[in-house]
Design a protein around this nucleic acid. Sequence first.
DNA 1: TAGAAGCAGATTTTT
DNA 2: TCTGCTTCTA
Length: 676
Amino acid sequence: MKNNLNKEQQKAVEHIDGPLLILAGAGTGKTATITHRLAYLVNLGIDPSSILTLTFTNKSAKEMRDRSFSLLDGSLTSSPLLCTFHKFGLLFLQLYIHKLDRQNNFVIIDKSDRTKILKNIDNSLPPSYVSSCISEFKNSGFLSNGENTLSHIKDYEKIISIYKKYEKLLIDDNLLDFDDLILLPFIIMNKFQDVRNEISSKYAYVMVDEFQDTNDLQLNLIKQICSNHNNICVVGDDDQSIYSWRGANIKNILDFDKHFKETKKIILNQNYRSSIEILDFANDIIASNSNRYPKHLKSNIGNKEKVDIIYSNNEHEEGMKIASIINKLRKDGSSMSNMAILFRVHAISRSIEEYLNKFNIPYKIIGGIKFYERAEIKDIIAYFRVIELQDDFSLKRIINVPKRGIGKRSVEKMEIASKKKNMKIFDFIVSSSDSELDEVIGARNRKSAKEFAENIHFLQDIAKSKIKSLSYELESSFSIRDYYESMQDSYNRLANIDEFYSYFSEYIEGDNHSLPSFLNDIALQGEQDNIEDEYLYLMSIHASKGLEFENVMVVGLENGVFPIIAEDVDIEEERRLAYVASTRAKHKLTFFSSQSRLYKGRGTILSPSLFLTKGEEMPFISKKTNNDFKIGDVAKHKVFGFGKVIEIKNENNKEKILINFGGNKRELLSAYVDKV
DNA sequence: TAGAAGCAGATTTTT
DNA sequence: TCTGCTTCTA
């Protein structure tokens, strides 16, 4: 097996039994190490199918699969399982969900489906808030009928009651949300020792990527899987833990040796990505954190390109500067995809876009609505699901799309009537006589419901006999194209649908690929944001994790923007974000900081981020008391200069003064203005 | 049932 | 300031 690993990486690769924690700093060859280890185990004669590797994203699962398979030169006798946590949960539940008296023809719902369901149950609390509470419950191992440690939550009683209704609805319709894909496997293994033993002996070697991002439930799941052997190898970087707000618990990696006794720890320090200058800066930032394993990244790449900090007076000046720098790089022949613009909050990208447009710089923003979250795609998927499963949830989505007169009330009536008969709505439509159905929804709606069911039956036959033409037949049976054609934004919608169809036909032509497996696969499929050469990419720092660019520009380095300053914000996590952003850069790193910015609809005066000033100056959260201004006093402001105080008022215990700066009147908090 | 008008809320979003 | 959602109106 060819390899050019360093000593520490090699040590990690050759560790076989017992818990191993690999602390891999940014750019230290984490993926190389994990994939080499996988190949190493296989080359020792260990059955590949007994090796389980878990990741968080489809993208990294694919990358690891490709890399480890290429190391193995096709010498595999069986396949190692290398997939996301959620995919593992899905595969598990297909085999074992019957233990909970549920069937394995479940449908996976996404976040917006869940919000919609919650809204229908009770709209008196914000559904998104309830949704995140439910996630929190599920991810801390809370069961709908069990105990919990979260009773301090606001509106607790009410949320629990919504939660119980929600769970009942999921069970009745055999739906699973994303959290269930982890929670239910945990519950099953926890309850049934035989299953736990079976799984643990099947997967005798377990690896987990990005371990710093695991939540409590995932850790517990891993413990179950490893209960027979403790052969657990995790890779991660506590300094890159930036998902605490999604339940990720940094303690999982910091206290790893408490969870798994006799852990061997290997630290990868040698960075192969960034220049010394960039690493010095990044090391310097992260060194201020106390919740971390002390470590210091090293690099042999010196290029004498300093880390730049560029200040601007406002966001326009900043946009202009960024666009001209990029334009110059482009003229010098640099590929657009070698550069990236990163920000903490999407809201500040607008002003930059304005100037990129002015300079004709082609760019793309990563983030926003994902392909599979688009309404038109979800509609088509719902049709496919009705064809395959006839589940109520999908049926309700499309029974009136395109409009066929079966409105909300009619659906409600059918739902009640079908529940009485313990049937799916679809089966109720099919099996009821005309007069029975007329009693529920009236003759006119009965006609279109029956017609709908006939069309679905026809498509079911197509799915069996010539599945390749399913999308074509779906189009013509339901005039779906006409429906979207009439909508605004029809061009994009139709293009999305076409893309979906072509993905479907590609998929279906593969080996052993059926409609059910297609539906399961796409349920967990995120968008593959492939970086294309001809575009400059703009993205949040979160979205940049795992990527690298020659030239990285980070904008909005101002207290209150980055770092965000608020009561519930963990400044250490903000610092980790600064660390992640910095370590994306290979050759050149530039920070932009503006003295004012139009933010949340207001022109705001801002001070340079404490990540740049090392915390020497933090007026945004300063305890400075109000100045004792009088009308007529001369005041000095760091940006607006000298002016005369013309009005003083007190609002919410804050002194505000109106100052005349040479004809320009501005109202400012007096704590930000000096008396002269 | 589409469009207007009014309103709150604005951090990140691997599955 | 802008967006997305709810409520109102024709």
